[in-house]
Design a protein around this nucleic acid. Structure first.
Lengths: 338, 338
DNA sequence: CTGGCGAATGTAATCGTTTACACAAGGGCC
DNA sequence: GGCCCTTGTGTAAACGATTACATTCGCCAG
């Protein structure tokens, strides 16, 4: 590998001059600059990022800690992060960590000296340990219960979104509304459940334990949960799935059981993944600005980095939007397929 | 930030001893070791990864160059990569690059000194420039036309998969088979097209230019393409979409046009994304082992790294599998929804 | 008693950069 | 001519680790 020394020797100057030319710092004669640039090009010199960041104390890299990379949701979040980071000259060091204390600590250790800051997504309710990791690094905590004030914090307004959707179902006349919940001990899942309960309470509808089934955020989980809900008597008239994947699985289960949607059963999801509108019937859902979530997280992190973490802590919540399509029965639209 | 020097001073030893204790290299008395470990813990010392990799010449990080992060496909590839990398103690530095020469070069420069090797996904047919980047780094090229022998190379067997699916449609009696193609100048797209043509030729069916419409790999592209195909006379009896997203978009377009699937029109996709089986009707498709693709790419790369790139070049192709569900009409199954 | 060996530890070079500081040359001004 | 400023360049000290080599000490064999 060719280093700055090789370039200096070949051009007959000192390394300092080469550095000055390549970074445009300090005065260099036009002639020397030209020669050095020529030599660097000819030798195909590429600066060693690691060495450089050791002395400059900037890595221009952001660490991203994820619980699991799964489905379109994460892919969109990462896209939002990468776009924003790249626009500011930063790269992404992505690491999946087990959500437990040990996993997070290990990941954080591995990032030391490689990143300028970290976006940590840790929806696991128990994993508050994250905040105990006392690093000087700026950290943005994503989709997690906000505690402590050592880190910035960005969440989705799950509660309001969930409440709005269930409220909408109630306004359509539904009284027995089931919920397919997300992963256990997941913050987003818990908040969506809270919104569901709150909407019911507000309409003076008594909660029925049999109408809450866990689906674990996966298609197959939603499928199984829907089958289970069909067996409940009296049967619910609407199912609110805590994400679109589960709603799609449920849709498929109902179809196979000969239950018409929305005539016999209303269905709604959460997230508004791109595929939602292409379902049959198109899926009513709560839009989560996933891309913007990632983008915003990086913006907040970069702000923290620029201020060397000496800034007032952010505590932000991105809002959701009710998306009413045919699956919940509100929009008459075309009659369902023959 | 606390450094190794701080630990050494506090423990009353030299940095060398601290290093020896923490890495388990060289002999240290049990007593000294104990004290140093205690001090390191108390001071919450975390080694500086950048500094360490400068001298050891190992970063334990793999660069990943992607054309775009989009949809479930990439999310699965990354998952496969990260799992495999992490199991071997490596991290992932992910970067989206514009597929053009400049974008790739910039990204490669940024990776110098930060990674031990690179997996580059560059499906753009023109971007052969990648191979011209003369770095000593081991590189695995993913889903790209194999050229040159400076890099290992891993592709999907698009040709065989596509040919198998079209052959299957032909065996069902279809003669007018349309194709919704992927992005222009995309290697995978081109190969799938080649398989389609080959299958037709083998069945002595003349190709009809009007039956090939571009869909750009997106749901909306597939939707628009399907509408366009419905207007062709004589109308095709089957549509082969070059990926599942487009097939789902097409499915939705047909539904809205009152065309029954599979009775009036057979549909097939490519990729077998998780959602495919939950469509109505469940989507026939070609399974691509996406997770394994990412996993295998990292395995090959790690092999190259261990051999310091002095190994015979790999040229591997992961095979696909025909998945027949109801959308192509081969499986009678339950009669379509009333 | 001495020489050699192994264990425990310290000293200093090294990795590839950036950058503070020193230095030399040239020019303008008094 | 002496002074100061500007411009161009080099020297060497960082950055935070690892590690080859040197040193010290105790012990044991000859």
């Amino acid at each position: 590998m060719v280093t700055i020394k090789d370039v200096a020797r070949e051009a007959g100057v000192s390394v300092a001059t080469v550095s000055r030319v390549l970074n445009g710092s300090g005065p260099v004669s036009a002639q020397t600059g030209e020669r050095i640039r020529e030599v660097a090009g000819r030798l195909r010199y590429v600066p060693h990022g690691g060495a450089r960041s050791l002395i400059t104390r900037k890595t221009h890299t952001l660490g991203v800690l994820l619980p699991d990379l799964y489905g379109e949701f994460f892919s969109e979040v990462i896209r939002g992060m990468d776009d924003t980071a790249q626009r500011q000259g930063f790269h992404l060091l992505i690491s999946r960590a087990h959500a437990d204390k040990h996993g997070i600590e290990t990941a954080m250790r591995a990032m030391r000296g490689r990143v300028d800051g970290v976006v940590a997504m840790s929806p696991d309710l128990d994993a508050e340990s994250l905040l105990n990791v006392p690093s000087m690094l700026p950290v943005v905590v994503l989709c997690s219960a906000p505690r402590g004030d050592s880190a910035d914090c960005l969440t989705i307004d799950n509660y309001a979104g969930s409440k709005a959707m269930v409220g909408h179902l109630i306004s359509l006349g539904h009284k027995r509304i089931a919920i397919i919940t997300g992963a256990a001990r997941n913050y987003d899942a818990a908040e969506r459940m809270r919104g569901y309960r709150s909407a019911l309470r507000q309409a003076a509808i008594a909660a029925d334990g049999a109408l809450a089934v866990q689906g674990g955020f996966t298609e197959s989980g939603g499928y199984a949960a829907a089958l289970q809900l069909l067996a409940v008597t009296p049967r619910p008239t609407a199912i609110f799935a805590a994400n679109d994947s589960m709603a799609i699985g449920a849709l498929s289960a109902l179809r196979e059981s000969g239950v018409r949607v929305p005539e016999d059963m209303a269905i709604a999801g959460f997230d508004d993944i791109p595929l939602a509108r292409y379902m049959d019937p198109p899926l009513s859902t709560v839009r989560v600005p996933t891309y913007e979530l990632g983008a915003r997280a990086v913006e907040i992190l970069l702000h923290g980095i620029r201020n060397q973490n000496h800034h007032a802590r952010h505590r932000e919540r991105v809002s959701t939007e009710l998306v009413v399509r045919r699956s919940c029965g509100a929009v008459p639209g075309r009659s369902p397929q023959r």
